[in-house]
Measured scan of single mutants.
Amino acid sequence: TGEEYIAVGDSTAQQVGDLTFKKGEILLVIEKKPDGWWIAKDAKGNEGLVPRTYLEPYS
């Protein structure tokens, strides 16, 4: 379980453990880390770190 967020920009994984996503994708945020990198899952079930500045709450 988690909260749904929509990507407001494209982000390409810079290192192992990062999640690549495109603008408009809905991501499920699993954990919000205080350093600004959140753990999220995409629609295909891929999981990784995403920069919170690229996400907005999805409603």
Rank of each mutant, 00 (worst) to 15 (best):
D18Q: 15
P51T: 07
W38Q: 00
T53A: 14
Q15D: 10
G45L: 03
W37A: 07
T53N: 13
Y54L: 15
E31H: 12
I6Y: 06
A7R: 00
T1P: 12
Q14C: 13
V8T: 12
V50T: 03
D35M: 03
K41Y: 07
Y54C: 14
I39Y: 12
K41T: 07
G45N: 05
A43L: 10
R52Y: 15
G48R: 01
A43N: 10
G17A: 05
T20E: 10
Q15I: 10
T12Q: 12
K32D: 02
I39E: 03
V8G: 04
W38T: 01
P34W: 08
D10Y: 05
L49P: 05
L55G: 00
L49S: 08
A13H: 10
G45Y: 02
G24M: 03
T1R: 12
D42E: 01
T1H: 12
E25C: 06
S59A: 12
P57T: 05
E31A: 11
D18R: 14
S59H: 13
K22N: 07
D42P: 01
A40Q: 00
V8D: 02
G36V: 03
K41D: 02
D35E: 06
I30F: 08
E47Q: 13
K22R: 10
L19W: 02
A7W: 06
A43H: 10
Q15V: 11
I6T: 04
D18V: 15
L28C: 10
E3R: 09
G17Q: 06
E56Q: 11
G9T: 15
E25F: 04
F21L: 04
I30W: 03
N46K: 07
S11D: 03
D42C: 03
F21K: 00
A13F: 09
L49C: 08
L19R: 01
E4L: 15
P34H: 10
F21R: 00
E25K: 00
T1E: 13
K32V: 04
E25A: 10
V16H: 11
L49N: 08
P57L: 10
K22L: 09
N46Y: 06
K32Y: 05
Y5H: 05
K44A: 12
A43C: 09
E4T: 14
K22P: 02
G48A: 03
E3W: 14
G17F: 06
A7T: 11
I39R: 10
I26F: 05
G36F: 04
E3T: 08
T12N: 13
V16T: 11
T20A: 11
D18P: 06
G45D: 04
L55D: 02
E4W: 15
G36R: 02
A40P: 00
T53V: 12
P34T: 11
V16F: 12
I39P: 01
L27E: 00
K41P: 00
G45K: 02
G2C: 14
E3A: 08
I26A: 03
G2Y: 14
V8Y: 04
D10E: 07
D35V: 02
L55F: 06
I39G: 02
Y54T: 07
I26M: 06
T1F: 12
Y5L: 01
G17Y: 06
V29G: 00
E47W: 11
G9I: 15
F21C: 03
V8W: 05
E31K: 10
Q14I: 13
S11Q: 12
E25H: 06
V50L: 04
F21A: 01
A13D: 10
Q15W: 11
K33M: 09
V16R: 10
N46F: 07
T53G: 12
K44N: 13
F21V: 06
V50Y: 02
K32W: 04
V50D: 03
K44C: 14
W37C: 12
G36L: 04
K23G: 04
D10H: 06
G9C: 15
L27Y: 03
K22Y: 09
G48Q: 02
K23L: 06
R52P: 15
T20S: 14
A43R: 10
K44V: 09
V50P: 03
G17K: 06
S11F: 15
T20C: 10
W38S: 00
I6M: 08
E31Q: 11
W37I: 13
Y58G: 05
I26S: 03
G2D: 07
D35Q: 04
P34K: 10
D10T: 07
A40S: 03
L27M: 05
E3M: 10
K22V: 09
K44I: 08
W38H: 02
G48I: 04
P34G: 10
G24V: 01
T53E: 15
D35T: 07
P57N: 05
A43F: 09
E25Y: 04
N46G: 05
G2V: 09
E56G: 04
A7H: 01
G17E: 05
K32I: 05
K33P: 07
Q15N: 14
E3L: 09
P51D: 15
K22W: 06
W38P: 01
R52D: 14
T20M: 10
D35L: 04
W37E: 05
P34E: 13
G36E: 04
A7M: 05
T53M: 11
E47T: 14
G2H: 11
